[in-house]
Simulated assay, not measured.
Amino acid sequence: MIRVFLALLLLSTPAWAMQDPREILADPVQESRAQDLFHDLRCVVCQNQSIAESDAAIARDMRKLVRDRIESGASDADIINELHRNYGDFVLMTPPVDPRTWILWGMPIIILGLGGFVAMRSLRRAANMDDPS
Rank of each mutant, 00 (worst) to 15 (best):
P28I: 08
E71G: 15
Q19K: 07
N81C: 04
Q30L: 14
L37P: 04
R124Q: 11
V91A: 02
S75K: 00
G113E: 07
Q35H: 11
Y87V: 03
P99S: 15
C43F: 00
F117P: 02
I110D: 01
D98S: 13
P96I: 02
A126L: 11
I58P: 04
I110T: 09
Y87K: 04
L92C: 01
R125N: 04
E23F: 07
C46A: 12
A56R: 03
G73D: 10
D55T: 06
D55N: 14
A17F: 02
V45A: 06
G88R: 12
I109R: 05
P96C: 03
M120S: 06
R42H: 13
V66R: 01
A77S: 10
D78P: 08
L83C: 02
S50G: 15
F38W: 02
S75W: 00
K64T: 11
L41W: 04
V45G: 07
L112D: 08
I111E: 03
I79T: 03
Q47H: 11
G113L: 13
I70D: 00
P95L: 06
I103W: 14
L83Q: 05
G106S: 03
W102T: 11
V97L: 09
Q49R: 10
A15Y: 11
C43R: 00
G106T: 01
L123T: 11
F90P: 00
T101S: 12
V118I: 14
Q49V: 01
R67C: 02
S72T: 10
H84F: 14
G113H: 05
A34T: 06
V97P: 04
D40L: 15
M93C: 13
P95N: 04
L92M: 05
R100Q: 13
W102H: 08
D89H: 11
A126M: 07
Y87W: 09
S50N: 07
L41D: 01
L114E: 09
L104V: 10
F38R: 00
F90T: 11
D98P: 01
A34G: 08
L83V: 00
W102I: 14
L114I: 15
E53I: 05
L123K: 15
R125L: 08
G116F: 08
L65Q: 10
A77T: 13
W16E: 04
F38H: 04
H39C: 07
E82Q: 11
R69Y: 10
A59G: 06
V118T: 06
Q47K: 09
E53H: 04
V118Y: 05
N81M: 09
R121N: 06
N48W: 02
P28F: 06
P108A: 03
A119I: 06
I103M: 15
I111A: 06
W105T: 05
D36K: 14
M107I: 05
R69L: 12
G116W: 01
W105A: 11
L114V: 15
R63C: 01
P99G: 12
I103L: 14
D27Y: 03
N81R: 08
Q35W: 05
I80S: 05
